[in-house]
């Protein structure tokens, strides 16, 4: 199965000063799957995303995308390969209206190349993407300034920024956090649709119940190390996972 992996992380480590944020982590991401990454706060999940997408350089280890090494490459070049990410802390381009936010990824070399150098009507493309992801065009939501959008729309905008790139992989960093059950319920179909279109998704999440409905496989991290890996139900039965992630006293968890 190793040969088919779209993305491979090999023995990657990173410390900040004395803090070992990520230690010797291995993982593979296969084409078309949704992989969940869970773990308590500070367990190195976001650092792992930063390492994969080139925002932080690893101390050791490497990341392979389609068998090619991408460690040490600048983030924008990695994004242009089709490996995109959302940010946990959303800061949209707040002075621009929502659809103008997407003009930035639509100008990337990757999109230019896929359109044969001609960009065409970017505004229309941007609005179409937003509408598909749940911005009601009739209510003029795509035209509102990003700074005036509520949290749910900001999360969608983050995802839309990735979708606009025409990506192969989207890494979602806590895309459900802070959302109501109803808002999550409308986000789930968007992710499922992406999966059906063949986009590979890696989700970092604290909302386990919602996550477990989506993912095929889950990886648990604790103190920068990979603690367990497997299908959600089995992983959550493991004693050390419960102890690390949920505390010892909990006896009924997960989806």
């Amino acid at each position: 199965m190793d040969g088919e992996a779209l993305l491979q992380v090999k023995n990657i480590s990173k410390s900040f000063g004395g803090v070992k944020a990520v230690m010797d982590v291995n993982l593979s991401l296969f084409k078309g799957e949704i992989l969940g990454i869970i773990g308590p706060n500070g367990s190195g999940k976001t650092t792992l995303v930063n390492l994969i997408t080139g925002f932080v350089r690893p101390d050791s280890g490497e990341v392979l995308f389609k068998g090619k090494k991408i460690t040490g490459i600048q983030p924008h070049k990695i994004a242009n390969l089709g490996l995109t990410r959302t940010f946990q802390i959303m800061r949209p381009y707040h002075s621009l209206s929502a659809f103008k936010n997407l003009i930035v990824p639509l100008n990337s070399p990757r999109v230019r190349r896929s359109r044969g150098g001609r960009l065409g009507d970017r505004d229309a493309v941007a609005i179409d993407i937003l509408e598909e992801i749940g911005f009601q065009r009739d209510a003029y939501v795509p035209y509102k300034t990003a700074s005036s959008l509520p949290l749910g729309y900001l999360k969608r905008l983050e995802l839309a920024r990735c979708i606009a790139m025409g990506p192969e992989i989207i890494i979602c960093d806590e895309i459900f956090s802070g959302l109501s059950m109803a808002e999550i319920a409308t986000m789930v179909p968007v992710l499922e649709k992406l999966e059906m279109e063949g986009v590979t998704i890696m989700m970092i999440e604290h909302r386990l119940r919602e996550l477990f409905r989506l993912v095929n496989r889950v990886i648990v991290m604790n103190f920068g190390e990979k603690l367990a890996e497997g299908i959600p139900e089995e992983v959550m039965k493991k004693q050390d996972v419960r102890k690390a992630y949920l505390g010892t006293e909990v006896d009924n968890v997960g989806g």
Binding site: T53, T84, P105
Partner: peptide, 18 residues
Amino acid sequence: LILRGIKDNDQAVRASGI
């Protein structure tokens, strides 16, 4: 728009492949 994007959030611009 890209320049204004850089002002508002340069990390997101990099993540957008620019």
